[in-house]
Amino acid sequence: MRVHHSKSRIRAAALVSIGAIALAGCSATSDANEPEPESESTDASGALAAAEEFLQPWAVESDKDLLIDEPLDEPVEEGAQIVYLDVGTPVSAVMWENLQAPAELLGIDLERVETGRDAQSINSAMNTVVELEPDGVINITLDPVFFESQIAQLEEMGAPIASGSIVNSTEFGLPEAFNGAEWMRINGEALAAAAIMRSGGAEEFVFYNVPEFPFSALELEGAEAKMEELCPSCTMRVVDIPIAELGSTAADRVVSDLQSNPDTEYFIAAVDEVQIGLPQRISLAGLDVGGIAMWPAPPNYEQIANGEQDATLAVDLNLMMWTVLDQLLREMAGQSYEWPDVATRASTITHVIDQESAPANASEGYVSIPDYQDRFAENWLVG
């Protein structure tokens, strides 16, 4: 199944045709200096152009640098124990796998602790982490509010926590995540701009929010702001997808929503796990609605390569996990570092991917810096 977006393509073609007719008609007007009233097509055309311009950093391949590109003061001690907090989503499993290569390169021991998704499970899991007495902890997406007491215990034993996709780490005395609140907002802006551009100037959108992920609300915030800026006449509904449905019934919930709201032309999702298996369900339901999301897993890349899923705001998960580990190593060594500006961080790690630019290796996914492993090895004084 291909994602057709027939309404959007017709609209985009109409914009070109109307623009040509308008230009041809200028010579026939009685008063060439009289301003033309702004039309809906002009508004849509302007939104498309503005969206494309805004997206340039996310759409153009260019030379990129590591976010922290300086060597460690000394090599990492072999056998250092690092705990990875697994929140149980498909992307979390991918991130765990992405840590295996750098762990082997450094000779460190990785321990995987599954946290569960409710307060009691998280508390129990974090007590296990404290008992392990690790040298450091990597946390992706788990809100520190659920394990504040264990943060104090880990700090007491000198075990820092490096975070990814955490928007409030500094509120709990943790190091700032490279992809914190402002990073999430700006990527939300990129999602909105991409939705306008790829839909050909649609005006009826929906945002599928995952309320359990703090970053999801910030992506939504950024998307709403950019949508209002680029297309004031557009509307964007918000529908919540519970985290428990990711990897199971999320696609069914989306199809049900689209059936109940037939005017919806394009959707945005906070996480691409919402789209796993979705194209087939959309096709079976007789719908013709495409969308874009963030945080793709291998099945998303496969769907895009097959022309089933329209696009994704791809995150280089390998570069992300090596970067979070790099931050943790510097925290463990007490070495200072500084993140670049938010726009640089966002456009370095993320990229708009469609069928033409889909990675050949879905398991590897989007690669932002081809020689990143060699660069990290040099900075980590390995080899």
Results as ranks from 00 to 15, higher is better:
I108M: 04
L142G: 01
A181H: 00
P160T: 07
D135M: 00
G158Y: 10
S92G: 15
E111F: 11
L99R: 06
P175Q: 00
L174S: 12
A125D: 01
F178R: 08
N179P: 14
V87D: 09
E114D: 14
D143Y: 12
Q150K: 02
E171C: 00
A162I: 04
N168T: 02
G136W: 11
W183S: 11
V137W: 14
P175I: 00
G164D: 02
I186Q: 13
E133V: 01
I151L: 08
G164H: 10
T89G: 07
A190M: 02
A162S: 06
S62W: 14
A159V: 09
P144H: 01
Y84D: 05
A190V: 01
I138N: 04
S92T: 12
L85A: 01
G136K: 02
Q100L: 14
M126K: 04
V137R: 06
G164V: 11
S169D: 06
V83M: 00
P134W: 13
Q150R: 10
G173C: 04
F147L: 06
D143R: 08
G158S: 04
F147D: 00
E77K: 09
E70H: 12
G116L: 05
P144C: 03
N127T: 14
E176N: 02
I166F: 04
G180K: 04
P90G: 10
G79T: 00
E61I: 14
E189T: 00
F172L: 04
M157V: 04
S149H: 12
N127W: 08
D86L: 12
E114Y: 13
S169A: 12
I82K: 11
E111A: 11
F147Y: 13
T89S: 09
E74F: 14
V130R: 08
S92C: 10
S165E: 14
M157E: 07
L72F: 09
G116W: 01
